[in-house]
Amino acid sequence: MSVMIDDRVTSGKTRLVGRDVIHRWEGNPIITLEDIPFSCNTVFNAAAVKCQGHYILLIRVEDKRGRSIFALARSEDGYRFVVNPDPCMVPSTEEPFATYEACGIEDPRITETDGTYYVMYTAYSRYGPRLALAKTDDFQTYERIALISEPVNKDGALFPRKINGRYVRFDRPNVGSTGNIWVSYSDDLINWGGSEVVMSTRTDHWDRSRIGASAPPIETEQGWLEIYHGVKEAAAGPIYRLGVVMLDLENPAHVLGRAAIPILTPREYYERVGDIGNVVFSCGAIYEEQTRQVKMYYGAADTCICVGTAKLDALIERCFEEEDAL
């Protein structure tokens, strides 16, 4: 494998960006607190989708009270975004959602399937995090469908098509302070079951403490490509990185290949310093078929949103690399 070291001139200075397969946009971060027109504490991460030529981000921000809410941002080029003046989705005041969203709504993932845009997100309350599902046509208004898991469960991401006639999602039930990636199945998007573990933490790797799905999976000829996050608890606190795995198209619980090293690890100032430092955390990636490029949107240091790009083939290749070759 060739080592990717990227020398670029930015701000008149040469920077060594690192060995990540994801290429950081030089204009990062793309959304910071200054870009949010309404008053809030911080910016976390974003779901991403391309709709009618426009790039759409559903951004998780923390309001002044300390609850997470969602805001809408739009772009023509996928790099420069304008955020709408008001939040587009806030914790519900109607039951049964109100009880379980009392502490906020978090980490949205958008998936288009059957011509509808579904948002799977975490409803957070005193009872812990659990998954919820909403749908939208215009990204301005959201219709809640159901609470779709018990606590403690998060990192839900809906697959873009049914498999063997059933809807499929990733989820991450927690066991103490650790968690692994699971799949669950549903006939109606409301009642879920048939759960089984997809993959677990690796005690001798960067994803040793807990893992969870990040972006909704991308369908490729080789299988489902999933960008996931992994956490390593270090002496100075957790380090959140992003990795890739390839799953069987007809049985997504079957791992075909899993990258040994991350595709993105915190290196830049905006990834190192913030509300929670040393965090890169993605909730959305857009595959551009024409260029075979993946634009991955990620939260950095729980303080801003960034974008990075990679060729789809490079990500696929990374899934099947021999560990000895790295």
Partner: peptide, 23 residues
């Protein structure tokens, strides 16, 4: 002249604390 279309900046009106983003 240096063409760096991706360099981020912030700007604010005179005597205004509110900043906006630019590239």
């Amino acid at each position: 002249r240096q063409s760096t279309p991706t360099e981020r900046l912030a700007w604010a009106r005179e005597n205004d604390k509110q900043t906006s983003t630019g590239w």
